[in-house]
């Protein structure tokens, strides 16, 4: 369990999996967020609900530096303030009309989103490079058991499988699932990356069958 109460970072996605001009849903402890990257490459994270009539913002679209809701086109800047209400083009929306946003960092190829106010920066990933993300139908404990190692406070689990160092960033998902971001040693060649991918898939299968979940549904 986390001991500090000021806030923490959640690894939500690989930076490479969020191209400029796109928005995706991402999972935080408190609920879903709309994670988006503007045309100039800046990432923002907002609550996944448009304050107009409650439509999910992660179903919206990004144009330039603005995230728009797919329902009525209400548009928001990176700071969360509403910039435009298309049904009423004459109105400059007041600052009060906004979505809640979360602090975001894009470091080491991983996108981290803050819950509350974290004490420091996201963890340094020390010579590891992101490879891919995958979801396991198993919780952290099952994954730790299968990996033979525990995850630290930041959800980071470092292990060695078949002679290869792997760093796994774990993010809890609903219904006992875990999102895993897989990182390999920087400079790994193609063969090593493929091997890492297969190792983690094997790990996932072990954790899922040990949990009596996953596999054939």
């Amino acid at each position: 369990m986390r001991s500090d109460t000021t806030g923490f970072w959640t690894p939500v996605a690989l930076s490479a999996d969020l191209p400029a001009g796109t928005v995706i849903p991402a999972r935080m402890a408190a609920g879903t967020i709309a994670l988006w990257r503007s045309q100039t490459g800046h990432i923002a994270a907002s609550a996944d609900r448009c304050p107009h009539r409650g439509m999910s913002l992660s179903h919206g679209f990004v144009r330039g530096e603005v995230l728009s809701c797919i329902y009525h086109g209400w548009s928001y800047g990176r700071a969360g303030n509403c910039l435009r209400i298309p049904a009423h083009p004459g109105l400059t929306p007041p600052d009060a009309i906004r979505v809640v946003t979360h602090d975001v960092r894009d470091t080491g190829g991983i996108v981290w989103v803050a819950s509350g106010i974290p004490a420091g920066d996201p963890p340094d990933l020390d010579g590891f490079t992101p490879l891919r993300s995958l979801t396991a139908d198993a919780d952290r404990a099952a994954l730790a058991l299968a990996a033979g190692a525990q995850a630290d406070e930041d959800g980071r689990l470092v292990t060695n499988i078949a002679g290869q160092d792997l760093c796994l960033l774990l993010a809890d998902q609903p219904e006992g699932r875990t999102l895993i971001h897989v990182l390999v040693r920087s400079g790994s060649d193609a063969a090593a990356r493929i091997a890492a991918s297969r190792s983690v898939e094997r790990l996932r299968r072990m954790a899922e069958s040990a949990s009596h979940k996953g596999g054939v549904q």
């Binding site: 409650g54 439509m55 179903h59």
Partner: peptide, 19 residues
């Protein structure tokens, strides 16, 4: 994909406009 799934009869979490 609307939240909440039920229709609110109190718009306290929404911002209805003249439209």
């Amino acid at each position: 994909n609307q939240i909440p799934r039920l229709l609110p009869l109190d718009p306290g979490m929404e911002i209805p406009t003249r439209a």
